[in-house]
Write a protein that binds this DNA or RNA. Structure first.
Length: 224
DNA sequence: TCATTAAATTGTT
DNA sequence: AACAATTTAATGA
């Protein structure tokens, strides 16, 4: 399992931070491990920290009153999230759950605001992150209405490998087809078929509980 | 190390 | 949604 320092080395916003400032940030971050299925934060919890996925995989999702689940985003190792709630100073609006055993970094709200007030590189990073996410969600609406199921699964999968949001060199992701279904808004059966199609097209390789991306660019543009 | 079993995941209808 | 097949992880000899 990766360490906090691995993740900080991977995050682009740490690179231009003066050593002294990075040291302070590093000292303020708390690290917690979660078992697969565990809840990292719930809707309504105060957003007291900016969160980073050091290792593992988490999802941001919402449960309907009837118990149906919609997943808005899966966030693999290397990703930071919840800046929206921290910026607003409002409680979390969604639940986040560990899909696998995961290690999470908690960067306290006060430290987050201090970075916001003092660091141009940090602000630049946040701006890019918000922009990338906005692009992803706009894309989701577009794909949901315009693309066939195979292509929707392809995009949902590709979104997990956004190099700006998740700067992780590992082209593999350990995720079940059921979770991929929640992410793509498709049934598990449909995802199963889509993965077979995408595998035959040479874009991905499918193994038990594991998907390896062979051609990210091809995945992104599949079906359009 | 190997066999057994339960649990998770996948493939198919 | 249901079922069978497959893979993994855990357990104990």
């Amino acid at each position: 399992m990766r360490s906090l320092d691995d993740m900080l080395a991977l995050s682009t916003w740490t690179r231009e931070l003066p050593a002294e400032q990075l040291r302070k940030v590093r000292a303020a971050i708390a690290v917690r491990d979660f078992d697969a299925g565990a809840c990292i934060c719930r809707k309504g919890d105060p957003a007291s920290a900016w969160l980073g996925v050091i290792d593992g995989l988490i999802k941001i999702h919402s449960l309907s009153p009837a118990g149906k689940s919609v997943t808005f985003a899966g966030i693999p190792a290397g990703g930071w999230f919840a800046e929206g709630s921290v910026l607003r100073g409002k409680p979390f609006m969604y639940d986040t759950v560990a899909l696998r055993d995961s290690r999470i970094a908690f960067l306290p709200e006060a430290t987050f605001r201090w970075l916001l007030d003092t660091s141009i590189p940090f602000n630049r990073f946040l701006l890019q992150q918000l922009n990338e996410r906005l692009g992803q969600f706009i894309g989701m609406v577009e794909h949901d209405r315009l693309l066939a199921p195979d292509a929707r699964v392809a995009r949902a999968l590709a979104a997990l490998f956004n190099p700006h949001l998740y700067p992780d060199a590992d082209p593999q992701i350990q995720i079940s087809q059921e979770e991929l279904g929640y992410l793509a808004g498709a049934s598990r059966q449909r995802v199963n078929r889509a993965l077979q199609v995408l595998g035959k097209a040479g874009l991905i390789k499918v193994d038990y509980g594991l998907v390896t991306v062979l051609d990210l660019d091809g995945l992104q543009r599949y079906g359009s």
